[in-house]
Simulated assay, not measured.
Amino acid sequence: MNASTAQGSPSKLKFNLFAHVKYEHLVAGISGGVASTLILHPLDLIKIRFAVNDGRTATVPQYRGLGSAFTTIFRQEGFRGLYKGVTPNIWGSGSSWGLYFMFYNTIKTFIQGGNTTMPLGPTMHMLAAAESGALTLLLTNPIWVVKTRLCLQCDAASSAEYRGMVHALAQIYKEEGVRGLYRGFVPGMLGVSHGAIQFMTYEELKNAYNEYRKLPIDTKLATSEYLAFAAISKLIAAAATYPYQVVRARLQDHHHRYSGTWDCIKQTWRYEGAPGFYKGLQASLTRVVPACMITFLVYENVSHYMLDHRKRQLLARDLSEKK
């Protein structure tokens, strides 16, 4: 973050930063994350199973394609099988999006000096998004480890290994310590670039569109415009950064052990070549693009509603005080 954008002592900077924190962004982000997760979790589960399928681990089921995976899981594990890992996914997605939007808007508004109509440009948007992503991952990585492992309990024998989210957290901590809860953290940090690219693209598209219409850049858009910009930004970010997600999922998988991130990359390249880093891409795009569209649409509408409500309350209070 550019410290030169604020004036005063360190304590004044801290005060100014926290003055820009708005809980509305947290609530709106949680709402968007939970909504998209409830609708699209089965596709997330299939994506993870494709990503960890290295062709050498017998305990991981083989699927011929997206349709085959869906029907096989439903036939063998029932409807509940399609929602394995949904609890930590809801917690993870809701908390991640909530924290991310809150951190991002706090940092962005701080850089803007409180003027939300001031354009930042691609570099500062990416910087704010990268900082937000790093903070969010630090707080939520254990939830994603649990989600991955619950999604990979593929049969009756392994389903007893973790009985649920809390049991999984306790077992991983007991057997592997804090390090186990932070498996995949390094590629996850590399994946901060995904969010930075996505948010930079999304913000630049919104700003350019509003400037084209000669309106303030924070003007509320139509539903179709939010959906289009969210989809475009997600496609660009996903195409650029998908391999890290494969590496991260494999490091978090308990069926196969790697000595570290580099070992996982080397083994994937050795046995599967470049296509190995893009396993599950179809399932991922099928899920993440509509998920992003739902998340951003819900977030934008909830945040605008709550922030407008806050402005109306403050205006009413000011008027009553003047009387």
Results as ranks from 00 to 15, higher is better:
residue 177 G to P: 10
residue 18 F to W: 14
residue 179 R to F: 13
residue 230 A to H: 15
residue 70 F to R: 14
residue 81 G to H: 10
residue 185 F to K: 03
residue 291 A to K: 03
residue 52 V to R: 08
residue 43 L to A: 07
residue 267 Q to S: 06
residue 186 V to D: 03
residue 148 T to C: 09
residue 65 G to D: 13
residue 180 G to T: 11
residue 40 L to H: 02
residue 42 P to G: 05
residue 279 K to H: 11
residue 42 P to N: 02
residue 24 E to N: 12
residue 109 T to R: 11
residue 260 G to N: 04
residue 111 I to S: 05
residue 210 N to R: 13
residue 113 G to F: 02
residue 98 G to W: 09
residue 147 K to T: 13
residue 213 R to C: 00
residue 272 E to V: 06
residue 301 N to V: 12
residue 29 G to P: 03
residue 202 Y to D: 01
residue 169 L to M: 14
residue 10 P to S: 03
residue 302 V to G: 08
residue 15 F to R: 13
residue 150 L to E: 11
residue 39 I to E: 01
residue 106 T to K: 05
residue 124 M to T: 09
residue 276 G to L: 04
residue 77 E to W: 00
residue 201 T to D: 00
residue 91 W to A: 15
residue 41 H to G: 09
residue 64 R to C: 01
residue 155 D to I: 11
residue 196 A to C: 09
residue 223 T to W: 06
residue 15 F to C: 06
residue 161 E to G: 02
residue 132 S to T: 05
residue 203 E to F: 07
residue 199 F to V: 06
residue 303 S to E: 11
residue 319 L to T: 09
residue 72 T to K: 15
residue 232 I to H: 03
residue 159 S to P: 04
residue 268 T to M: 08
residue 59 T to H: 09
residue 173 Y to S: 15
residue 205 L to E: 02
residue 59 T to V: 06
residue 1 M to D: 01
residue 186 V to H: 07
residue 280 G to Y: 03
residue 215 L to H: 14
residue 286 T to L: 15
residue 35 A to D: 03
residue 140 T to V: 15
residue 245 Q to E: 11
residue 42 P to C: 06
residue 132 S to L: 01
residue 188 G to N: 05
residue 153 Q to T: 06
residue 81 G to R: 12
residue 118 M to Y: 09
residue 102 M to K: 04
residue 138 L to C: 05
residue 150 L to A: 05
residue 28 A to G: 03
residue 108 K to G: 06
residue 46 I to M: 07
residue 176 E to K: 13
residue 307 L to T: 03
residue 87 T to S: 11
residue 36 S to N: 08
residue 64 R to E: 15
residue 126 M to G: 10
residue 160 A to G: 04
residue 226 Y to L: 04
residue 273 G to H: 06
residue 122 P to M: 10
residue 13 L to Q: 06
residue 159 S to V: 00
residue 313 Q to P: 00
residue 89 N to G: 15
residue 9 S to M: 02
residue 216 P to N: 02
residue 253 D to C: 14
